[in-house]
Amino acid sequence: MQEIFSSILGDQLGPFGPLIVIGTLGAVLILAALPALLKRKADPMERLRKQTQSKGGGRSPARLRQENSKSGAKLEKYSAFLEPQSEEEYSAAQLKMIQAGYRTKNAVRMFHFAQFALGLGALAIGLLLALLKSSQQEMTPKSLILTVLLPACIGYMAPKYWITRRIESRKEEITNGFPDALDLMLVCVEAGQSLDQAIIRVAKEIRSGFPALADEFEIVSFEIKAGKDKTVVLKDMAERCGVPDVASFVTVLIQSQQFGTSIADALRIYAAEMRDKRVMRAEEAANKLPTKMTLATMMLTVPPLLIILIGPSVYDIYVLLRETKF
């Protein structure tokens, strides 16, 4: 078998030529067979919906929503493969996507498709790199495995890293803008507006500076207008944000509503606490700065200073020893 492959390939791929060719053929066969394996029968309700839309004509709201999510609809037939089948896992994945700012119903499906597509694409790139390197020089099994699998791992983990960074940046934005939002809400409530009207006005005012927090307040206002219980709406907001300050604020509002206390007094006290916490976070960051700069200071300041102070003496000692030796 080795002689046959060597004669066919002309000894251009090195000793791992047969292994690389077999792996490439296997990957091509897997990519070719995936659509047939993942294809499922069309849903009768989906066919009925399409027939109804074709008969009715026009651009109905359902059709507009379908046009806005074409990419997710194309992947719907692969939902059994691209979405978690467990309800708890799907809820956790959906909450993570919402916290990252992706609220469409196809967000989880698109996330797993991005992982799958980038992983396979990076695997193909790794195989090409391995083919090029093995044709130029002999590769060890360890370097061959790293060349093929390392890009695939990076491609697979890139969407997860992106979502994690989005969640962290969004939480930081909400944390920074929440004290200002509370101050504005307190002004609106003391001016005679209700809490619902104050939330709508605050969402409009902070849109330019903190769009993530404005989106959360708008969702709260829309859900309250739709007739959803205010307690449930506020708890959902705390869960979507994932910020401890927002969760504490929601607890304060719920308790104020249950016990009949003044919302303005609760907002005034809690807004003062949020301002103090923001000052404490700024002081904490300022106190961490000297510690973080210590290593950079040692590496960038001490060596040049030693060269300036000790360099001439070292040079004089070198010249003296050289003259003494000769």
Rank of each mutant, 00 (worst) to 15 (best):
G72W: 01
P179Q: 02
P312K: 00
A282G: 04
M97E: 15
Q51K: 09
A124T: 06
F5P: 07
Q137S: 12
L131R: 03
K39G: 08
R166T: 04
A198H: 01
T231G: 10
G227K: 04
P141G: 06
I200M: 12
D236N: 14
L300E: 13
S54C: 07
I206T: 07
C153S: 12
T301V: 15
I263A: 03
F111H: 13
F249Y: 12
R275V: 11
A36T: 09
V189P: 05
Y102E: 13
L127W: 09
L234P: 09
S248H: 14
K225W: 04
A107T: 06
F111W: 08
K133C: 03
G155Y: 00
L38Y: 05
V250R: 03
Q258S: 09
D245T: 11
Q115S: 13
T251H: 03
A114P: 00
A92Q: 15
G311F: 00
Q255C: 02
R103C: 09
L31R: 11
L118K: 04
Q51F: 05
T24E: 07
K235F: 02
I30V: 11
T301S: 15
L234Q: 03
K142Y: 05
Y156V: 12
A282S: 10
P151D: 05
F5C: 08
I206W: 00
T297S: 13
L19A: 14
P159Q: 04
N287P: 05
G101D: 10
G209C: 01
E168M: 08
Y270T: 00
M299P: 03
E216L: 13
F113H: 05
L295T: 13
I219T: 11
D265P: 03
S60H: 06
E87D: 12
E76P: 03
R103M: 05
S134W: 00
F217T: 00
R59H: 12
K235P: 00
L13H: 04
I254Y: 01
V148D: 07
L306M: 14
L38G: 10
D265F: 01
P179T: 01
R278Q: 14
P211N: 14
L305Q: 10
L195M: 15
F81N: 01
R170Q: 08
A122P: 04
Q12M: 11
A62I: 08
M139R: 05
L295E: 14
G26M: 13
K171P: 12
Q99L: 07
R278L: 02
G260E: 05
M110Q: 10
E190V: 13
Q12R: 13
Q255Y: 01
L295Y: 15
L123K: 06
F249T: 12
S134L: 03
I145M: 11
K225F: 08
S262P: 03
V187Y: 02
L306D: 02
A296N: 14
A73R: 08
C188A: 12
P290C: 10
L213S: 01
A42H: 05
N106V: 08
P303Y: 15
A107D: 10
